[in-house]
Design a protein around this nucleic acid. Structure first.
Lengths: 158, 158
DNA sequence: CTTGACCTTCACATCAATGTGACCGTTCGA
DNA sequence: TCGAACGGTCACATTGATGTGAAGGTCAAG
């Protein structure tokens, strides 16, 4: 398939596909006319790249990691250098921190929304927030509610 | 406290504190001598900003969101415009997608690490990966193992 | 043969988050 | 009173991931 189709199938701007190539993340074949040619494998590959990028990994790291997670669904042991494994472990930790952080912030926002709209039915509405707001509403207190420290979250070391 | 202390307590370069101010995310007081003065609340505030930034929210959005999650642990209802609630809901969804995406990728990497090091004890080592690798090792097959589609994850619309 | 959709490269633009340095004022302790 | 440590502004530089557009080649359908 050519770049247009891959672009559609991965919901990724052509520009980015070329960019990933520029960064050495993907290496498409070339037709006689110079057009880039991608096979099926590139669909997963690109999605994977996008996922890792979104995970906060820079292209530099992804490039190192990718040969290990190479052909989608297949692991190539020979590619794993100890150096790389260390990198991976580090990134793994950072990702976990990021996830925790995201979850805390998301929950804080969800809670805020629940509280602010009185949608106490929302699963995320914690007892404390829900009760706080209902109490406030009942008493006509200035509309403020206690929010757990959920929203506060230090950023992992970059 | 002045910028140096806040910088230390939030592990945030002074430069960034000034940057956040420039972006309207924080508005410190000013001493007579022109020095910025921050009170305790700014510590949480800055950590929260860092968290939200790390969550992928642009400063532009954070600026809108922040007045709502304002004084840490307190919600100010008056600040919530319907427009803003919509924005928040949108971001909430995006954050959830991001979280799922991150988790999938993290697990994929964790799994890879487990498999590649034969550390089948790791909680994340799925039966399929573990068995695949042990089978491969037992038979002397080319060192490849089936990996679930975990690593592949489309990026949420930006 | 022409048109339109697709492809190419090149190159400059943007945006957020940072780094860095110049240059100057303030505070404080030795 | 001097210097170190800190503060201030200004401003330019960089990096990563993107957007965007110009100028031109390829190709299939009308």
């Amino acid at each position: 398939m050519r770049i247009g189709e891959l672009s559609e199938r991965t919901a990724t701007p052509r520009r980015l596909l070329r960019y990933y190539e520029e960064q050495g993340l993907i290496v498409p074949y070339r037709c006689a006319n110079g057009y880039r040619a991608y096979d099926e494998r590139f669909v997963d590959r690109v999605l994977q790249i996008r996922g890792l990028l979104d995970a906060g990994l820079p292209t530099r790291i992804i490039k190192q990691i990718l040969p290990c997670l190479d052909k989608p669904r297949t692991i190539h042991f020979p590619d794993a250098t100890p150096q790389m494994l260390a990198t991976l472990e580090g990134e793994l930790d950072r990702m976990s921190e990021r996830i925790d952080c995201l979850i805390r912030n998301r929950d804080a926002i969800a809670e805020y929304l629940d509280v602010v709209r009185g949608t106490a039915s929302g699963a995320a509405a914690s007892a404390v927030a829900a009760s706080a707001v209902s109490a406030a509403a009942a008493e006509g207190t200035p509309a403020e509610a206690a929010l757990p420290s959920a929203g506060v979250c230090a950023v992992p070391v970059a």
